[in-house]
Nucleic acid binder design. Structure first.
Lengths: 152, 152
DNA sequence: GGCTTCCTGCAACTCATTTGCATGAGTGTG
DNA sequence: CACACTCATGCAAATGAGTTGCAGGAAGCC
């Protein structure tokens, strides 16, 4: 076996299953499969990418995938990203332990070529804008658009 | 008549018609009506808002509105904003005279209550993020999410 | 007024996402 | 270990924004 330092699929599945258990919910194969996939992904995945990948060795209904994703977001295990193409992308919420809610303080990078979206590190804290009177900011969303390393 | 200092509808229509003429295109009532509406709006309008408003005194086909909006964006007279609800919003491109293209350097504010989106001033120039190797940024998108003055 | 070309309106379509409902599978209990 | 009680899944059908093809209509130019 190759001297890979990356977590194996099995390890990721174990992580995924643990997270699902910790959420106090039933451990089902669709949940496990989707979360394992998200944990292994290097970029935010669309619903389509997920169903396509899963269909190779496990038939999961499209609707179920939608519901699993929705549930993951509710649990704070993943977050959804809106893009220019009106398609949701999903990525695990990393940092701050398991149920890291509100970790939406990081920026995103969207490749205009391949459409892939990546999570970046925390955004600069100094994104303060002067607002019209009466406006109150709750969250800030920062998306860089350009060409990713794979497409240049 | 009230001592309004805001441009009258007639004046806006004149502005709209001038902009359309300057673009070297035919002046048609759908184009004029849509652009007049956008010029008068204090927030970015959805396709739905536009057709609903127009239908009061001028029947314009949904598809035509879509095409007019697309055309306005192509001409640099308007820009389209993607939101969380997978609906495009359109706003006139202000500043730098008529055909102000690339004025996408401003931030947006999206109200989580009513869904309305507003254009803010220029974003802080210092939104530089460290990117993974090989990534090249072309445009930056900054959206503040919170409660607008009307909803608080 | 007549011509040419671009624009509009209509109908039908695409495609991501959602909803309703009946069946089926986890999980705690006896 | 079987049983029941939910909760989750699968299927079918619906929703809703946005798109496409095509034929008729109207701006702009002479």
């Amino acid at each position: 076996m190759p001297a890979k330092s990356l977590p194996s699929i099995a390890a990721r599945k174990a992580t995924a299953d643990g997270l699902i258990r910790d959420a106090g919910a039933r451990l089902t194969s669709p949940r496990s499969a989707v979360l394992t996939l998200l944990l292994a992904a290097d970029h935010a995945l669309t619903h389509q990418e997920i169903t396509d990948t899963l269909s190779v060795d496990l038939a999961v209904d499209r609707v179920t995938v939608y519901r699993v994703l929705e549930w993951l977001v509710e649990q704070g295990l993943a977050h959804r990203i809106a893009g220019e193409d009106r398609v949701w992308r999903f990525s695990v919420s990393r940092g701050k332990g398991a149920g890291a809610r509100h970790d939406h303080r990081h920026a995103h990078f969207a490749c205009t070529q391949c459409g892939q979206t990546f999570c970046l590190g925390d955004m600069p804290a100094d994104v303060k804008m002067k607002l019209p009177a009466g406006f109150r900011t709750e969250t800030v969303e920062l998306t860089l658009r350009g060409v990713c390393s794979h497409c240049r």
